[in-house]
Structure formats: structure tokens, C-alpha cells
Nucleic acid binder design. Structure first.
Lengths: 341, 341
DNA sequence: CTGTTAGCGCATTCAA
DNA sequence: TTGAATGCGCTAACAG
């Protein structure tokens, strides 16, 4: 009912001691006798005291809080990354503020500004698709706030990064198809200006080359990460004169709709066409598993990124130079995704 | 490099004016001449000033921040609710802190404590499945912080709530099946201690009654919201001696796995069994649409909830009494989910 | 329009 | 072990 905010001074007054002693007691300092400490804690409890972190953080110039900015929290990859971040942060005594940029640079900038204004101790983020301008991150750096960038490539080299080894993943996936006996392997790719897709294309090429297979330009099918892109890709595949028997997908969004299109055409996956690819979404829980995936292990990236970030927060004075961690993806093959002959 | 935190005093000193004037200028007060205002803003920019919201909020005893607590951000319903919350909040000048309880009461309590310690102006939340104890919310209330609860029923009546009209939704869905000519309609339900499922059951019963159809106890199939519960439910349906031709599902998780089990048995949905139900997940984008759904409209609930909450924040002194808003669900029928005969 | 003064709630230094 | 004093950075009376 009444806005009855209790402060350490209220506790001090009732107990006829000084507020500094109360502060010490509430922070469990060993410079207070056990007796008074108990007295203080009891009274705090009785009065319903709730510490004011605004004041505390202001005074200490430290918030024990990490800001997290991702494009979209609902994407499976990011929500599992967030799980990893939260777990690691909580274990080390940090709180976490989660924000989503919705892939918009302007929103990202505002979020970063707000986080900075709230004096978070560090920021872990995956940049938006629009982000080719790093002024907002520059500002953080000037401020002395460490930033860690994960998942998405970023040319702003002053920050530490945690990335996935896209080349290696693509290489393994394609090799897997080759080992299954596939002769004509199509590659579903994404926007060709994104580093991720460039690297995956390279891995695909390298795998073909290693097995002395020809690289066919026409087999690289680009799309824009839209929900129904895969339909067009599938139709292109159907139009090839020779029989496509394998697909390496760098793009799970397209892969899903493509599978539906194939199904309509009577093409069975994986019996007629084997399909392997990078996958963020927990596809298997919803559709018949047909895609072996390269696990992007969001939570692993979140964990490692947060550990790195916290290390940097602690060493802030030592101005640690940016680190770059590359995570090896692992190919998960489900039985039902094997090609049967 | 250097932790060069600029304050209003630094700006004031360089310009040889008082910091209070700087503060006014930075807050765009009209009690500063345009000339000095410009001078100050320019200098602030030049020095790379970044306001300290900790100090500002402490002083103003207001953070312009709303805390959001949901069980799990990755669930479609909650992430769309969050979208609605963010949009509404930003429009009204509020920031948002997103947290997930992971359905754990203890986590929820900690989150609420942290939000309270950070002096958020209000909290909008959907309580965890474990939450039958409302001490943490009680504390907020004592503190004068308004709380709005959405989506999940809660016996703690001092807060405003935004809920879905489960009875009405169930009634409409079941009626739809009846209108399609279904004679034997099974009901997939959830944990019977949850209000949501009780209300949906009532709606189902009412629809049957209105059409003079018998309610059969055995047609109510409960489950626990586990991923593969639907398999068992489907098997139960298959064992009935009479032919089941309709299913009203109150539980989308079960519905998905049930559909897969039916498929295995050669039962076609919706040709052999029509299926209608509440659905949070964007099922249609992944599987063959087979389920007409009652849209829980997360973003709508988020929007309305946030508007209500902000209203209460503003009227805090007037201790507005708790409001209760019931949202009408709307039945979305997809063509392909119609029963063909 | 601008300056003076005070204090939000807390943590910490220095004395005692 | 405790108290007194100071200030984190900012805003908001009140004066002028």
C-alpha cells in the first residue's frame, strides 16, 4: 500500500547504531561482530529491507551485470546460447540482461547505449545483419567495457570473438555425403556477402576437390534466409537434367521448406536424395528426421564466450588483447537420415 | 584504453558553468538558453559523455524500466508476447528487462528479487509451473511495485491479470468439429490441476451438451506436457472400439506427436480424423498443416498487459484495484485442416 | 535563464 | 569492532 522503502539508515536508527555498520553486516563483512550482525539481519528481515542496487552499484562503480544482445531470442540457436550464457554468468555471480536487436542496426545501437548507460560490466553479443558500422561498439570500448562477439563475423577486430569453424563443418558434411556414394551434390547457400556462407562454400569445394569430384557452379543455390526460399531451391534441383543425389545445406530455413517441396514431388528424403547440413532449429522434434545436422552448439558458444568475457572484465586494467576462439562443429548423424540403397 | 568516465561536472568545468545547467541541458529542459544548450551538447559529444543512469535513476527514484519474467523465452507464445511487450513499452518510453524462470520457482524468486533490487517500475510476468507460493510477489506489492500476470492463472488476486478465455476457445473449437459432422470427439487435455485445462474441458463439455451429444468420460485423455505424450494418447484413440472422427486438443505438444503416431498407423489427419486445438507453436510452418488452431495471440496479451501495467505505474499513488482482462481467442481454420468426406 | 545547495542509498576510508 | 565523514553522478528545489 504505502511506498515504504526501508534503507540501511532506518535499520541503523531502530538499532541505535551507525548505518556503516549495517552496510557492513548486510555485506557479510567480517568486521562486524556476529552478535550485531545477527541483530541487524533479523531487523532487516523484520522491516522487509530490500537493498537498492542502484545506489550500491553507483557507489561501487560496478554492476555485476552482463548485457546480452542477440538478433532474436526466439531462434533456437540464440535461446540455447542464452542458456549457456546465463548458466555461466550466474555461476560466477553475474546477472544478465537479455535484449534482441531484431536484426536492426538502429535498435542494436539503442540497446547498446542503454546497456552502457546502465553501466553493465560487459557485453556479449551477436551482431545484427545490418551491422557494418561499429560506432556503438567503439563507444563501449572507449568506456572501458569489454565486448565479446559470438556467432557472427565482424570486422571490428578490437573485440574478442567466438566463432564456428564453418569451413570444417561444411567439409565434414560434404565428405559424409561423398562417403555415402553421392555423385551430384547440390549446395544450398545463403547471402553470399556473409562470411559464414563464404566459408561453408569453401568447405564444400574443398571436400569435392579432395575426392577428385568436379565443382559445378550451377550446383550452388543461393537464397535469402526467407521462410519459403527452399521451395524455389527444390524446384531448381528438380529441373537439373542429371539426378541430384545429395544436398549439403548451409541454411536450415531453406532446407525445411525444400524438404516439403520434395515431398510434394514424390522425392523421398533421404532415400532418393541424402541431405546433410548446418541446422539451428530442432527440426527433428517436428518433422520426420531427414537431415543430419552440424550442431552449432549455441550453449557451448555462450558458455565459452561468457567465460572469456568475465575474464576480460576482471582484467580490465590489464587491457587484455582480443582473443579469437573457433569452435569445431560436430556432425550428428541420425540413423534415419542415412541413405538407403 | 583508459577508463575515462566523463560526468556532467567535467563538462561544466570545461565550459565554466554549473553542473546543474549541464544536467538541464542534457535533459532538454526549456529552462536553458538555446545557445548554452547547444554549447553543452556539443561539448558532451566531443568529450564522449555518457549519462549514468544508475545515478539518475537513484536520484529520481524511477528507472523507467519494466521487468519481464516468463518461463522460457524460446517458446513461441512467450517470444511473441515479449515482442508485444517491448513494442508497447518502448512506445511509452520504458525499457524492458527480459528474464526466464525456466519453470523453476526458485529461479523466479531470485529474478524477482534482482528486479526489485534494481528498482524496476513494474513487472509483467507469466508464473512458472511450480509457483503456488506468492511471497516474492507479495514483497513487490509491499514495495509499491505493480505486477501484472498474464497467460497463467494465479490465485494471488491482488495483481491485475490478462488471461485467455479458455472456455470460449474450447467451446468454439469443439463446436467447429461438431459442425463438420464429427460424432465421436476425443479431448486431449493436460494436467488436470491446472485451471487452463479445467476451463477447456468445461468448454468442450458445454459444446457437446449444446448439440445434445453425450459426454464420455473415457474420451478425456490427460497428459503431462511432455514431448512424446501424444504417442500414448494416439494409441489410446486407436484402441477405442468405435471410430473416433474428431479430436479437440487442449495441448499442442501432445497433438504433434499424436499426429506422427497416427500417420504411422495409416490414419490420415484431417481426412480420417479432424483435429482442432489450442496451439502456441507455429506448427504450420514446419509440418503439413493438419490442425486448425486457436490463436493465443501472445503479442496481443503482451500489448494489453503492458498498457495496463504502465497505467498502474503511473497511478501508483491511487492504488488502483486489480483489473482482470479476458482475451477472446480466435479460431483459425486452414483449408487443409478441413475434414473432407 | 543560471547558480547554490542538498540529498537519493550505499560503501569505504580513516579514526577511535 | 564500531562510528564519523565523504562522495559515487545526478536532479530538483530554491534563490537570484
Amino acid at each position: 500500500m504505502e511506498n515504504n522503502t526501508i534503507t540501511i539508515h532506518d535499520i541503523a536508527k531502530t538499532l541505535e547504531i551507525d548505518s556503516s555498520t549495517v552496510s557492513r553486516a548486510l555485506n557479510n563483512s567480517d568486521r562486524v561482530s556476529l552478535k550485531t550482525k545477527k541483530k541487524i539481519l533479523d531487523k532487516a528481515n523484520e522491516l522487509g529491507y530490500q537493498r537498492n542496487l542502484l545506489a550500491s552499484n553507483l557507489r561501487k562503480n560496478k554492476t555485476n551485470t552482463i548485457g546480452v544482445v542477440v538478433p532474436r531470442i526466439s531462434r533456437h540457436f540464440f535461446s540455447s546460447a542464452i542458456s549457456g550464457i546465463e548458466k555461466t554468468a550466474f555461476n560466477k555471480g553475474y546477472n544478465v540482461i537479455i535484449c534482441q536487436s531484431l536484426e536492426q542496426l538502429e535498435r542494436e545501437q539503442n540497446l547498446i547505449d542503454t546497456l552502457a548507460a546502465n553501466r553493465v560490466d560487459g557485453v556479449i553479443m551477436s551482431i545484427s545483419m545490418e551491422t557494418f558500422n561499429y560506432n556503438h561498439l567503439e563507444k563501449l570500448k572507449k568506456n572501458g567495457t569489454p565486448v565479446l562477439i559470438f556467432d557472427r563475423h565482424c570486422n571490428f577486430s578490437v573485440h574478442s570473438t567466438v566463432l564456428l569453424d564453418d569451413f570444417q563443418g561444411a567439409f565434414e558434411a560434404t565428405t559424409h555425403l561423398i562417403n555415402q556414394g553421392c555423385k551430384n551434390i547440390v549446395h544450398f547457400s545463403g547471402p553470399s556477402n556473409l562470411k559464414v556462407y563464404q566459408n561453408r562454400l569453401q568447405g564444400y569445394k574443398a571436400a569435392l576437390e579432395k575426392s577428385n569430384m568436379n565443382f559445378e557452379e550451377k550446383y550452388v543455390l543461393n537464397s535469402h534466409l526467407m521462410n519459403n526460399d527452399g521451395i524455389l531451391l527444390a524446384e531448381k534441383v528438380l529441373k537439373f537434367s542429371e539426378k541430384v543425389d545429395g544436398i549439403f545445406s548451409a541454411n536450415d530455413v531453406a532446407a525445411i521448406s525444400a524438404m516439403q517441396r520434395f515431398k510434394k514431388a514424390g522425392i523421398r528424403i533421404p532415400e532418393d536424395i541424402a541431405m546433410v547440413g548446418f541446422s539451428n532449429e530442432p527440426i527433428s522434434s517436428v518433422i520426420e528426421p531427414a537431415l543430419s545436422t552440424i550442431d552449432q552448439s549455441g550453449s557451448k558458444m555462450g558458455k565459452i564466450g561468457t567465460e572469456l568475457l568475465i575474464e576480460q572484465i576482471k582484467n580490465k586494467s590489464k587491457l587484455a588483447k582480443p582473443e579469437k576462439v573457433i569452435i569445431k562443429p560436430s556432425l550428428l548423424i541420425r540413423e534415419s537420415s542415412l541413405r538407403k540403397r
